[in-house]
Design a protein around this nucleic acid. Structure first.
Lengths: 224, 224
DNA sequence: GACACATTCAAACAGGCGCTTGAAGCGAGC
DNA sequence: GCTCGCTTCAAGCGCCTGTTTGAATGTGTC
């Protein structure tokens, strides 16, 4: 078969096309026919090489992970928590906004968050929780000691939410701010904003006045 | 027909079931057969009363909006920006975490953000942008003068992201923190956290050191 | 050249989808 | 009692989905 200079292997072209489509559309909305068309491959090739759609999907995760940008290691002593947070945020954003393979893994995970499949449990165990714990330790160093676990988690979510937003809600952002671009320069700017917003919140946390939970009822909910 | 004490009207039972299903699953994943089964109604009733799935979907928005909790009016002079922000955040959260009809509208909008249909443009124009502008003015009052429009928008997104996260990523949150509940008390607590996090960030914004955009390259991205 | 084997192909299958159909049910007006 | 018009119903249509099939096409070995 590789007597001709045909593109790599059918299996690999399938993974390439599937990575693209799954990352963009999610598992459910992606179609095998669409993937095979993108790979210039017969529909039955999925069944021959992977058995079923779900197995192709799993294989794409393995394939995509090796190309994904990685969160760099702690280096607790040499790098400030501020710098680590920036690095964390920027890497996370790059996981969506890179072109092609480098972004697949991040997009696949983000898709799993809004439309879980059988992969999510494994992802939480192997990828999401370890990264969340690492972020939690960075957050903990920024907010200072004597902060309970519950608050720490809420702060982690407040940080993570800020970058996930730009992937999950990108279509709405595009309508609210039509001129906004997401090139490398804008990603750095965005990462800088999220980092500054989060660090300012975390460093001022303990000095900040506590109470927004005892407001008069009419400020809590108003019904028609 | 209402000689019997049969439930309201077919049309209304359809809207009830459709509101439930669309809010939970989104437009695409919801099926007419599933909705009609939930409404104890024949499949053809959708076509008879609404013509097609998309028209039923539009009708659900009108039906749901009248039950949705509303963002209360500004009262710029009498209420502090802090209190207004809390009210804003809490109302937004209640739009997801209420039971049944009150939460449909918020869920429908949140679904549109991650999987847009023909409704999104109208929603941005009629609902999302006006609310975003109101939030932007609150944010502007908290962060102070002399802040450019671009930064203001990024801050608005940083706030909005924090509550959308709990809807879009609820399945992952449930896996990371299995014990977390979302009853009325927890919603108040959550709203208080998001408000405190945001206010602390915004009020400290101008005093916060600026630069996270000139870090050494190795803190920006690391490839395998 | 002939065989065994792995791979690819066009075609079709079963099932679920949105939507349509023509007949049946039902209440109101005469 | 009868017809008329609105509503409901079971059944089915065409389409798209994931998956299967059996034949065709190489490819390496003897």
């Amino acid at each position: 078969m590789n007597g001709k200079d045909k593109t790599p292997e059918t299996r690999e072209r399938l993974l390439e096309a599937a990575g693209e489509v799954f990352a963009e559309c999610g598992f459910r909305a992606a179609t095998i026919r669409g993937i095979c068309e993108g790979a210039n491959v017969n529909n039955a090739a999925v069944n021959y090489h992977f058995g079923e759609k779900e197995e192709l999907y799993k294989a794409v995760f393995d394939y995509a992970r090796s190309y994904a940008p990685r969160f760099h290691e702690p280096e607790l002593s040499t790098v400030s928590a501020e710098q680590q947070l920036y690095s964390f945020v920027h890497t996370a954003l790059a996981r969506f906004f890179d072109q092609g393979r480098p972004a697949w893994f991040g997009k696949l995970i983000a898709q799993e968050m809004i439309e879980p499949t059988v992969m999510l449990d494994l992802l939480v165990k192997k990828q999401i929780r370890p990264n969340a714990e690492r972020l939690k330790s960075i957050v903990g160093r920024l907010v200072g000691r004597e902060v309970d676990e519950e608050t720490l988690w809420l702060c982690v979510f407040s940080v993570v939410a800020q970058w996930l937003f730009y992937f999950h809600c990108r279509q709405m952002v595009a309508r609210l701010n039509p001129d906004r671009k997401f090139g490398p320069a804008e990603i750095q700017q965005l990462a800088a904003h999220i980092t500054k917003f989060s660090i300012t919140a975390l460093k001022g946390w303990k000095e900040s006045p506590v109470g927004f939970d005892n407001l008069p009822a009419r400020y809590q909910l108003e019904r028609p």
